[in-house]
Amino acid sequence: MPTDAPAMPARRALAPRYWGVHLLMVAAVVVCALLGRWQLGVWHDHRTSQAASVTHQAPVPLDDVLGPDAAFPGSGVGRPVVVRGAWDPAHTVYVADRPRDGRTGVWVVTPVVVTPSGSAIPVVRGWAPSKEEAPAGPKGTASLVGLLQPSEDTGATDTDTHDDVIPELSVTDLLPRASYDLYGGYVVATDRSVPGGTAGSTPIDGMAGLAPVTVEHLPGADTSTALRNLLYAFQWWIFGAFAVFMWWRWLQEDVLGRRSPGPR
């Protein structure tokens, strides 16, 4: 009957004798998609690992990477630097709305007046659930290894410039709060040992009572990093698309008999 005509190709294509071919095509597509996704993940992991490798370099003195009056160098992002000087707890500030492990808290930031430059660099000592739960700023000699980061200058507005809570760690916004010059960036304190130690009084890294902070800015990976894995990912997806094409062509020509007309 005419009403059955449109259903005939579908019945023919779904005949039990063709189920094996259909299942083989589905399996091939799934395998190609998963292998492509795996290679893409490997590509991403390699690039992330290379970007983070800078944080494992041997620390160098702060002034070797960023001078007191110098612009922030692109090569300085994430570099471990040694900061020595004196803590200035009177100018401790708290950077609001900083997430950690699913919670929102504050970064606790205290400047260190660096020896011998006399300029200060803001040091992110760590994370606290709130300003009230953060320990008091340290006093005395500062000696620590920190990861260098560029100033945050997204344009976030500080609704109250008279308190010690700020929306972002902007060196420009911190300048009016201090009586000394500031470096053009900040450091995130780590628990790494300072090379050679410090003579005299016991140095303080300022991290006591605070959770460590993960750096937000790392240098980008090279374009060629893990490029082969990225190409492998596309290759597997192309194989999957080709499998679909071959299945469709087989279905049209061998099962449904819809062969393309040959040349005259």
Rank of each mutant, 00 (worst) to 15 (best):
D163W: 05
H217W: 06
G257F: 04
V108H: 03
V109K: 01
P6F: 00
P73T: 00
G240D: 06
L147D: 02
D173E: 06
T92K: 00
T202K: 14
V83S: 00
T157H: 09
M25C: 14
T202D: 12
A120E: 04
S179Y: 06
V114P: 04
W127M: 07
A211Y: 09
H46V: 13
P116Q: 14
G20L: 01
V21W: 06
M8F: 02
S170V: 02
R100V: 03
A211K: 12
V65Y: 07
V106C: 00
V113W: 09
V255D: 03
G76M: 02
T190N: 11
P150R: 04
D64E: 08
V194N: 14
R125T: 02
R84F: 03
L218N: 09
I166F: 02
H44D: 15
W107Q: 05
D160R: 05
S143R: 05
P61F: 07
G220H: 05
I204R: 12
S53K: 08
V65A: 10
G137S: 10
P203G: 10
R17D: 12
W250I: 10
L40D: 09
G240W: 05
T104R: 09
V188A: 00
G262D: 08
T159S: 11
A189C: 01
R192M: 09
R249N: 07
W38Q: 07
V83Q: 00
G126Q: 04
A241E: 12
V42F: 09
P122D: 08
S260T: 10
V54H: 12
M1Q: 11
Q235P: 01
V77P: 11
D69F: 04
G105Y: 12
S170E: 02
D158F: 12
D4V: 15
Q50A: 04
V93L: 01
L14G: 07
T198F: 09
S151W: 05
A208S: 14
R98V: 11
A211P: 08
W43E: 06
L227Q: 11
V113M: 12
R177P: 00
V30H: 10
D254P: 04
P219K: 11
A51Y: 01
R84I: 05
T172V: 11
P195S: 13
T225V: 07
R192D: 09
K131C: 03
I166K: 00
D173L: 02
A58I: 10
G36H: 03
A15N: 13
A7F: 13
T198G: 09
S53D: 07
R125S: 03
A211W: 07
V188T: 02
V29H: 09
H56K: 11
R11D: 02
D164C: 13
I121W: 03
V83N: 00
P122N: 10
P59R: 13
A233R: 04
E152V: 11
E253N: 05
S130C: 02
M25N: 11
G85E: 04
R258A: 14
A226C: 07
L210Y: 02
V83D: 00
Q39N: 05
D173F: 01
T154W: 11
V213G: 01
Y186V: 08
P203T: 12
L66A: 08
P116G: 14
V165A: 05
P212L: 04
R37S: 15
E132H: 08
T202S: 12
V244Q: 00
H22R: 07
P263E: 15
V194C: 13
L175V: 15
H217G: 01
W43Q: 08
D191T: 14
